[in-house]
Design a binder for these strands. Sequence first.
DNA 1: TAAATTGATGCAATCGATTACACAAATCTA
DNA 2: TAGATTTGTGTAATCGATTGCATCAATTTA
Lengths: 341, 341
Amino acid sequence: MSEKTTIYDIAKELNITAATVSRALNNNPKISHSTRKLVLETANKMNYKQNRLALALRSGKSNNVGVIVPRINTNFFASVIRGIEEALHPEGYHVIICQTHEDKNREIENINTLLNAQVDGILMSISNLPKENDHYLQRVTQKNIPLIFFDRKKEMDNVSSVTIDDYQASYEITQHLLEQGCDKIAYFSGDRTLEIYEDRFRGYQQALLDNNIAINEDYIIPIKSNVVEGRDAVEKLLALENPPNAIFSTSDFAALGAIQKLKEHNIKIPEDFCVFGFGNEPFTKFMELSISSVDQAPLEMGKMTAQVFLDKINNVDNTKTGKTVVLMPKLHIRQSSTRIK
Amino acid sequence: MSEKTTIYDIAKELNITAATVSRALNNNPKISHSTRKLVLETANKMNYKQNRLALALRSGKSNNVGVIVPRINTNFFASVIRGIEEALHPEGYHVIICQTHEDKNREIENINTLLNAQVDGILMSISNLPKENDHYLQRVTQKNIPLIFFDRKKEMDNVSSVTIDDYQASYEITQHLLEQGCDKIAYFSGDRTLEIYEDRFRGYQQALLDNNIAINEDYIIPIKSNVVEGRDAVEKLLALENPPNAIFSTSDFAALGAIQKLKEHNIKIPEDFCVFGFGNEPFTKFMELSISSVDQAPLEMGKMTAQVFLDKINNVDNTKTGKTVVLMPKLHIRQSSTRIK
DNA sequence: TAAATTGATGCAATCGATTACACAAATCTA
DNA sequence: TAGATTTGTGTAATCGATTGCATCAATTTA
């Protein structure tokens, strides 16, 4: 029934050894023309398929790569994964997906099971920033398995990363809002223990500094990336004695929530208030009032991440140190922040 | 350097055999208490990790499941995959992602490499409908590997499927539009060689029939799932002598395009024209003019698909025939189709 | 023609873990 | 106390493919 043909079956059929079959299938020059032909024909006839597990065990290469993300069903991560898959597929690698839900324990567990599964590399976007205890990450590099961060990284020896220039994006956005005449820019911040959010914050700060505008602590609001948090944040901001006239949200979803709430307060966008998001989620473009945002080039990021991995594994890049790739973000300035045309 | 501890290393360390180590680690009752304790301690000290490849080769179970989708970075498929991953992860299975880009050759290739990789099951959403030649799919079931379709299925012996009731959804949508007073309902159709699109079309037809409304062939427009196709389709419809007063689009993106174009023609929605989408993409809810749509319950679909697989593999369901699970769709009636409140 | 070379294949170990079977020592039964 | 059980480990095969080394026959060289 469940016919699994092995090289032994072929060998028995032809009265030769499995070694010869293996060599014939692998185009080993030591095999005679006639034998090779016979083996190939028989293999085809018997519907032989190579067992990649056996090969993996012997060679120590599974041809599997683990990808760890907080969750897969967001446009950004799904697109990065698409990029990774498309770059790795032609090279014969399979992509194994793991989710952490931002939970450090899940992250540790995922790494361990991936290591047990003998993956050839781990590409991940960090969920947590374990200041001291990154032992579980070091185990990966200790085993000589390439570890590559994308988007959310962490400085580590011998670990590569592919990110966008969050600082630059943030600086440009803030500058843009200032140029639109917004001098009181609120900032929706992510978890600043993560480098990307810290970088974005620095960009915001520096742009204000360069324009001689003091930071107003009341304008800095920590949020999670969803609509409701954006709505709530606006309520807080509007209750201030001196409310802002612009919002730079590091989340498109929060930006959307903000816009909804601002409208409910009959505040006109962009005339009275500008909003800028981050991430270029599909909906930002689709809205009747389209939302300005930054494209994080997820597809490209995925492809680059895969490429960095391939370079490592193929020893093209045989440096001991990690490689750091920084992609340039692209601002999409739309209606929600366009006063001056 | 790249320290890989095996059970043999532990055995040597303790002057026992690998067999004993293996038994101790697997809680085999035949092992004495003292030996077990010693083995566990040493394993821990030497940082032993089980090599899943070796286990997989011996047991014939890789604990990997292949998931094949047209592309991963759409909200629907990404969410299904999330559901699958979340249901399979606790059971110790890993999810391997493959994309077809709707290309039959990629589909065949993906199935073959998954089989070579000895996956324990294949969960897929079909890209093509190979009327006759589904040989490559039969090979999966012949090898006794569970094959389960989700969303886009195909009738096959001994193959299970998890879908939503596309016919029912479609019928209800059409009925709803009729109740809103729309008697001329255009229909944006997907590729009707795929069952889901054929089912949707039947639902639309039947609802019209039940309301004694004749089908107008001019209203049936084949589209691909994107914004531009929706815009173009509206141009065609408005050029008709007798243009419709509603659109039922089997794609949210096309529905969005349609709405954009209708607005450009100064047609009021929903007063003069109703639009209904399909898929419940996040943006449909976010729009200022929110778009009515159907939720396809992707997370649930993913979880169900995983469950059907688990039942098969655990022999809970030891029937020879496939199992057919049909989830009920949920209409989200929003502004784009709400005339009567 | 004997010796050396080449060509094609077989032998057997290996990758790491599991497990049926064998076996010795310890304990129990009558 | 001899024989029967029980207990705990070791032996060796297995999963499927690869590969260094050995081997044998055919061919070439001197």
